[in-house]
Design a protein around this nucleic acid. Structure first.
Lengths: 252, 252
DNA sequence: CGATATATTGAAGACTATCAACTACTGTGG
DNA sequence: CCACAGTAGTTGATAGTCTTCAATATATCG
């Protein structure tokens, strides 16, 4: 296998791993172990996915996991009754599709919210690499683990928080992700629709809309379609952190 | 390391791996690879934990993952405001504590609901074993993956189901687990309190109680404290599967 | 057997969903 | 370039579900 076979160029720019901002956490190559590199690395196949297109759909057989390199992806599940529930929004650096490991079939569907660049990692190659690279193994385990943590944090919010608290926490989460990516945390561009947000937070679309309006009336945020400006971070944090309507604890 | 060093006996009975019902899915030894066994296996330290005692608490540094061998364990998180939320109930065969992989600190606490036998697996030993045994590696990944699936299924239910539907689904889940363990699925012994159930399903204790009563009045179940008998499985399933109050889908 | 925790039941009120109407954007085609 | 259609978002009124508070009953443990 020649070295260049590991880097497949699409459109001639940015598709090279060398230019990728996530190489430090990449699971396709063991950056900490350069001399082993080239033997153990997985041929990465970056793929451009357009808004509305799917990475995979629930029920499809599990072959690959996907890493978002740029753009935004939503994952959702469909219950036996046909109702849709968004389970997450995934930004650059995120791993998508690993929940299929257990059953060998994708349990959720993944759809691009805008134009995305996606690294497709064949799962068998990834596990093989894990066998040789403790670094990559730990990265994979940490990814799975943090998905669990995120899901459980969401469970906590859905269960014990009012609509306003949930939405405030959601906006802060978006802002934080912007910050991590090096952008201003006060300017959030929502790639998803109100319906998606509502589904994710278990709220009706109308409720999402109403609360955004209310937050704007209180001068906490400015809403312009999908462009949110956070004007009073402290107030937003206060809303999100507010004590929930007194739930008696289950203790021994 | 002598072979017997891998089996630490507690109380002289049932602590030997040979008697363990979960050896086929055990992560401490590679049962599919007997000749490698003895070299790669992890010394298992079974531990007896009594009702109310903790396996670990949120914030503690992450050293081990835990496998429930017998008994029942609940995991819960505490928000910054101090409110408690139960994130799961764990029965024999379940892996607990892996959500700490990401941060190196436990994010939830795990408390025994009754007397439990727990296998303590040092995480560094486990990852080392994973490097050598694809079988064990896949088991670990599948465990993490199925935790994600479970959490997301719960998210779906919390978000889009009424209290009655959630509780019906919960009872069916308990029954199913009984069945898998070889017991009658119609006789469910709830190891957890109403408060725990309420916290898990994001319902007030009173609501849980009321709905159990209602189900009993409809001759669907019989409630005797923590002993639930399912009298009309079909009706219970119908309740759980019932279409949610029409949520408009978010589609392109 | 008494004390405390757990569970049940009732009444009132809050939050959010639902239904309905309307507005604003997006993109397409004439 | 503008008009139109269709989608997405907003706003208002009403109703339902579940929480909260309060009181009582039942179980558990010392």
């Amino acid at each position: 296998m020649s070295p260049t076979a590991q880097v497949i160029s699409i459109g001639g720019r940015q598709a090279r791993c060398e230019n990728c901002g996530h190489i430090g956490s990449c699971m396709a190559r063991d950056a900490d172990n350069p001399e082993a590199s080239g033997r153990h690395d997985i041929p990465v196949v970056p793929r451009i996915v357009h808004r509305g297109e799917h990475l995979f759909r629930a029920g499809e057989s599990f072959e690959n996991v996907y890493v978002v390199r740029s753009g935004a992806v939503k994952t959702y599940v469909i219950s036996s009754q046909g109702d849709v529930h968004v389970t997450g929004f995934h930004l650059p650096g995120d791993l998508v599709g690993a929940d299929a490991i257990a059953s060998g079939q994708h349990v959720c569907s993944a759809e691009a919210l805008d134009t995305c660049s996606i690294c497709v990692l064949p799962f068998d190659r990834l596990t093989a690499l894990c066998m040789r690279s403790p670094t990559v193994q730990l990265r994979l385990l940490k990814h799975l683990s943090s998905t669990i943590v995120r899901d459980e944090a969401l469970l906590l919010r859905l269960g014990q928080r009012t609509a306003e608290q949930r939405l405030a926490a959601f906006l802060l989460e978006q802002a934080e992700r912007r910050r991590v990516q090096g952008y201003s945390p006060y300017e959030v561009n929502l790639a998803m629709s109100r319906a998606d947000i509502g589904s994710y937070l278990a709220l009706a679309v109308e409720t999402v809309s109403r609360i955004l309006t209310r937050l704007q009336e209180h001068d906490i945020i400015t809403v312009q379609r999908n462009r949110i400006r956070i004007r009073d971070l402290a107030a937003l944090e206060a809303l999100a952190e507010e004590a929930p309507p007194s739930r008696r604890a289950a203790a021994h």
